[in-house]
Every structure is written in C-alpha cells, then in structure tokens.
C-alpha cells in the first residue's frame, strides 16, 4: 500500500459519501445520472467477485463491502425511494448505457490477463469503470447548471483515478514484476474523460463562479 493508492481510495470514498450526503440531505437526485450509478454498482459487483475467496486485508475487505453497499443503496434510493425518485431527470438521462456494458463485456472477452471467469469479469469491471462516467457527464452538459455537491462528486471521482495513476507509476518503479497494463490503460482513459470537466471545474473555482459546462 502506498500513499497515492491510499489517498486514491479515500478520495473515492469521499466521492461516494458526498453523493450519499446530497441524496440523503436534499432528498433529491436532480443532476445525478442513474445510469452512471447502475454502471458503478455493476463495476463493483464484477470486480469484487473475490470478496469471499481472496482475503487480502481487513482494509481491502471492508472497503469492498462499503463500495458495493453504497453503490447499491444509491441505485435503490434513486429507483425506489418515493421522494428521491421524483427528482430524477429521467428525460435528460438518456445515455444508452447498455451499449457500454456490451462493449466492455466484448472487450474483456478479447483482452484479459487470463481466460478465467474471475479475470474476465475483473477486466470487464475496469473497462466499464473507465466509461461509467459518460452518462453523468452527458447529463451535466444537458442540465447546464451543476449544483455544488454534484460538481464535487464528479471532481473527487476523477481525482481518485488520477491518484491511482500515480500509484501505478510508483509501483512500476518499486516492484519488479508489476505489470498491470489493463488497469493502467483503462485508468488513463478514465481520467482523460474527466479532462474537460476538470478544466471547467478549475475555471469556475478560480473565478469563484458557478460551474457552467458548455452545452
């Protein structure tokens, strides 16, 4: 474990807590893409299949359970909670995310570390995580104004993967056999997708203005 990875995990956790806070405190999910949340729930379920078979550390197991439970509870809230579901921007959140799932599944069948059930789902979860933010970014562009908590949620979500890239660079230079190319490449793609969001987020922060994404 290195500081970059720990900081990345904490930033990821903060992003999930910010989202839960927003939904719980405001009883609203306006500006949040249900499709991105469903994709994230799928990412965690597909990646943590080894939750009961490989014990790595208490920290690892606890964080896996937290991510699975939080992502499922956000999806449940947005679908079932009577107050929250009313504020869901159904007509704006129209990204066809099933194509993302199909594409990533096909990609995992073609490019993986080993042709085993667990490894294919692991590669699938990495590819899916790289593109899972797309419905959310499209929704933000469509809804134009971004409320603070949603902006912070997306910002922390992007920052976590950027910290992981530093972690992979660190591990590449400190561990002789570290060759996780699937993680690195999908992580780079994922962080790149946040590129324009980070740019507008920084501009709005610098001008102390409200975050406006060009439609």
């Amino acid at each position: 474990m290195n500081i970059f990875r720990f900081a990345g995990d904490m930033t990821h956790l903060i992003s999930v807590l910010v989202l839960l806070l927003k939904i719980y405190a405001t009883k609203s999910c306006s500006g949040i893409s249900l499709k991105t949340q469903e994709l994230y729930a799928l990412v965690f379920l597909a990646r943590y299949l080894d939750l009961f078979t490989d014990f790595i550390s208490v920290y690892n197991t606890v964080m896996k359970i937290v991510f699975i439970m939080s992502s499922l509870s956000i999806v449940w809230c947005m679908r079932m909670h009577p107050m929250v579901r009313r504020s869901y921007d159904k007509e704006l959140d129209t990204f066809r995310h099933y194509f993302l799932i199909a594409g990533c599944l096909l990609g995992a069948l073609l490019v993986h570390e080993k042709f085993t059930f667990q490894e294919i789902f692991w590669a699938f979860s990495l590819y899916l995580e790289a593109v899972a933010i797309l419905p959310q970014l499209v929704l933000l562009q469509r809804s134009g104004n971004v409320d603070n908590l949603t902006g912070q949620y997306v910002f922390f979500l992007g920052a976590y993967r950027a910290l992981y890239i530093l972690n992979w660079i660190y591990r590449y230079f400190t561990e002789k056999h570290f060759g996780r190319w699937i993680s690195c490449i999908s992580g780079l793609v994922q962080t790149a997708l946040y590129g324009d969001f980070f740019y507008y987020y920084f501009i709005s922060w610098k001008n102390n203005a409200k975050l406006q994404l060009p439609a």
């Binding site: 995990d9 990646r47 964080m63 991510f67 692991w122």
Partner: peptide, 10 residues
C-alpha cells in the same frame, strides 16, 4: 504453479 496473484487494489 505460481499462486494466482490476487488483485490487491480496489
């Protein structure tokens, strides 16, 4: 057979 390297990252 080398033990399967469990993915230790989240």
């Amino acid at each position: 057979e080398q033990p399967r390297d469990p993915h230790d990252e989240l």
